[in-house]
Amino acid sequence: MKILILTNSIVGLYKFRKELLYRFIENKYEVVVSSPNDDPKDYILNLKNNGIEYLETFVDRRGVNPLKDLKLLKNYLNMIKTQDPDYVLTYTIKPNIYGSLASKLLRKKYINNVTGLGTSLQQDSLLSKILKKMYKVSFSKSECIFFQNQVNMSFFIENKILFSDKQSIKLIPGSGVNLEVFYPRKKSLVDKKIRFLFIGRLMDEKGLKEYLECAKNIKEKNKNVEFQILGPFEEKKYKEIIKKLEEKNIVNYLGVSTDIREQVKEIDCIINPSWHEGMSNVLLESGAMKKFLIASEIPGCKEIVINNKTGLTFEVKNEKSLEEQILKYLKLDEVERENIIENCYSYIKNNFSREKVIEEYIKKIS
């Protein structure tokens, strides 16, 4: 059995799906991975050392240049012809569309994972209409389409991109969380400062603007808090914005991490103000480490963070709503915080194990 995996980021694949790849190897499958080379720390080498072949393919994640996308389709066609896999697995938007289309044209079996909708698909625009048609054509012969939340699945069905009675559709708990890797660890910092952390690509759609505005407002009223930021600059404008805020001691930029456990260990509360998610890995991993969670009330977050039970939620794109929940968190006493943290930990442990996701893939391919 030979499996070809197409994705737009080797980092995301390694961090969230390496256990699946290694299970394939254990099952004596031949595994080939194709992605852009965005490897900051030997992820590709680790895959190769475990018997996985790597092929570099450029994917313009956010671009809308049709010539580049046609080139990507041509690359996928050539790759699938050359590799001749039994199954093609695709993740993220462009590999899902063009990888599926190439597989369909070459009559190869393929399985898709919809990791999120993206802003373009949800807008009332010509681009949205084109994307829906492309998904419909590309997914029409899929062996199975995995969705990470119910709202995304319903969107595809309601917009007649998929037909639930004719196609194999399955809801899975995101990428799941490896509970042997992400577990509670003691802080080494012993001061009384309360630390908040934003983790993600630094861009508008991750809610960074709202996070920064709240940091400015709350720091004026409460000096005993620290707002941290961890992640790469997806939109370059934020380099100057964050630099100025650092100079005023409003935020603390931590750079990029190859192991977020080291940063998460030292903070009190994770804030995810994202506009859209498939299923938030940041929330799953941080909750498994017993950190308090505050998140946008959106699909992909609200399945994990149930307001006042497993964390606090706020209205997406609403910095005032986010600020109110941060202030509410600061007013909670230690017992109230710990109860919510424990509820969240148990909920994630019982419902979001990565092993469940792996088993779904193995069942489909077997």
Rank of each mutant, 00 (worst) to 15 (best):
I5A: 03
I10W: 04
F16R: 02
L20K: 14
Y22K: 15
I25K: 12
N37E: 09
K41M: 05
D42M: 05
D42Y: 06
L47P: 07
V64G: 04
D69E: 14
L70V: 06
L73K: 03
L73F: 02
N75L: 00
Y76I: 09
M79P: 13
K81S: 07
T92M: 01
I93S: 13
P95V: 07
I97H: 02
Y98S: 13
S100P: 07
L106N: 07
L106S: 04
N113V: 11
T115Q: 02
G116H: 01
L121N: 10
Q122L: 04
D124T: 12
L127I: 15
K132T: 07
I145F: 00
V151N: 10
K160Q: 11
I172W: 01
S175C: 04
L179V: 08
E180R: 14
S188M: 06
D191Q: 06
R195S: 12
F198Q: 14
I199A: 02
G200A: 04
R201P: 06
R201M: 03
M203S: 13
K209I: 12
K209D: 12
Y211N: 10
E213M: 03
A215N: 10
K221M: 04
F227M: 11
I229L: 07
I229M: 07
I229C: 08
L230E: 05
L230P: 06
P232S: 11
E235G: 06
E235K: 15
K236P: 00
E240Q: 13
E240L: 12
I242D: 08
L245V: 05
G255Q: 04
E262H: 06
E266K: 09
P273G: 06
M279H: 07
N281E: 04
L283G: 11
S286Y: 00
M289F: 01
K290Q: 13
F292Q: 09
L293A: 05
I294S: 03
I298E: 02
P299A: 02
C301N: 13
I304A: 08
I304D: 09
V305T: 09
N307K: 04
N308E: 07
G311C: 03
F314P: 08
E315Q: 14
E315L: 08
V316S: 13
K317H: 03
E323Q: 12
K328W: 01
K328R: 14
Y329P: 05
K331Q: 14
V335E: 09
E338I: 02
V357F: 06
E360G: 12
I362N: 09
K363T: 13
K363E: 15
